[in-house]
Design a protein around this nucleic acid. Structure first.
Length: 302
DNA sequence: CTTGGGTCCTGTGCGC
DNA sequence: TGCGCACAGGACCCAA
């Protein structure tokens, strides 16, 4: 008889950017949607910020409607008229145990739920016996609970740029938001007001796909380069989400839990490696911009 | 308004 | 082999 195992340690580069959050959303939706929250245990006062007053009591008894996503934020709509906002920060994970996962493979679940682990900060029990645990060693994550009618005005969401995979994100809107900015393109794309959901990894990857240097000034992106960049952003995110879905199934079969996908990057964290672009003989370089690593190929990214 | 730098937090991995 | 420290990241905050 085996004890239920926890998710193995995640690789350092499995940062939750938009594709990872979308992967978590897709895995969590069948667990949470339509379920009533039976009980919520807060094992500390907050994460990055204090939890809102009475959050556990306000969640208890609520039924979860649609599980959505905006940028890197998970949004759980509730029948109480409130929405739970969850941000994974850089090390946050949502682990599923019990419920359908346990019934589907009882041999792997000697106990209904694994014992609490360090950094298990929030435990959400649902009315079918399943449990969603928020674990976040670095506590850069966040949770808030706000009136759904006021969601769009929430300070974390109000100023976000367009969803990169949505209909309102076009080469023209991208160029308009980059216009006039004297900051390097790398920094501009990390600004969530320009386009929402990109982090350091996918900015590096999108710039490589577009053949644009991270050092190029944002305002120098004209219509032609905006098309290349727009297409590259969409393609790299779509590829990452597609890869994430596959590994999500693996995680569920192995542990009944949700995890991030592992993905092979073209340039991110690959300093010194040959540029993977066909017919490019360049080498991936690491530079530091605004205190962050940028990985790029100086030969084919201009 | 724009831009850049500091800060939080802890596990990992490197160098000595 | 063991210890210590730099590093990683998102988003807020503040200063210029």
């Amino acid at each position: 008889m085996r004890r239920a195992r926890r998710t193995p340690p995640q690789p350092l580069n499995a940062m939750p950017e938009l594709p990872e959050v979308e992967t978590v959303r897709r895995g969590l939706a069948p667990v949470m949607e339509g379920r009533r929250i039976a009980r919520v245990e807060l094992r500390r006062d907050g994460l990055r910020w204090p939890f809102p007053p009475g959050m556990a009591g306000r969640l208890a008894g609520a039924r979860v409607g649609a599980l959505g996503r905006r940028s890197k934020y998970l949004l759980a709509g509730l029948d109480t008229g409130e929405t739970l906002i969850v941000h994974l920060g850089m090390s946050g994970r949502l682990l599923v145990s019990g419920g359908g996962a346990a019934r589907a493979n009882p041999a792997r679940f000697h106990h209904a739920h694994p014992a609490a682990e360090p950094h298990d900060h929030v435990v959400i029990d649902l009315d079918d016996g399943s449990r969603v645990t928020f674990n976040d060693p670095r506590r850069f994550g966040a949770m808030d609970l706000v009136a759904t009618a006021a969601l769009a005005a929430h300070p974390l969401l109000a100023r976000l740029g367009p969803e990169p995979l949505g209909n309102r994100f076009s080469p023209e809107t991208l160029r308009a938001r980059l216009a006039g900015r004297r900051t390097p393109l790398k920094a501009a794309l990390l600004d969530q007001r320009v386009v929402a959901g990109l982090g350091n990894i996918y900015v590096c990857e999108a710039l490589w796909r577009a053949g644009l240097s991270p050092r190029r000034l944002a305002r120098s992106v004209g219509p032609a380069r905006a098309i290349r960049l727009h297409d590259a952003i969409r393609a790299v995110l779509a590829d990452a989400i597609a890869a994430g879905g596959a590994s999500l199934r693996d995680y569920r079969q192995a542990d009944g839990e949700l995890g991030y996908f592992q993905h092979r990057f073209a340039v991110y964290d690959r300093a010194g490696a040959p540029c993977p672009r066909p017919e490019c003989t360049g080498t991936v370089h690491r530079i530091v911009q605004a205190g962050r690593s940028s990985f790029h190929c100086p030969s084919c990214q201009r």
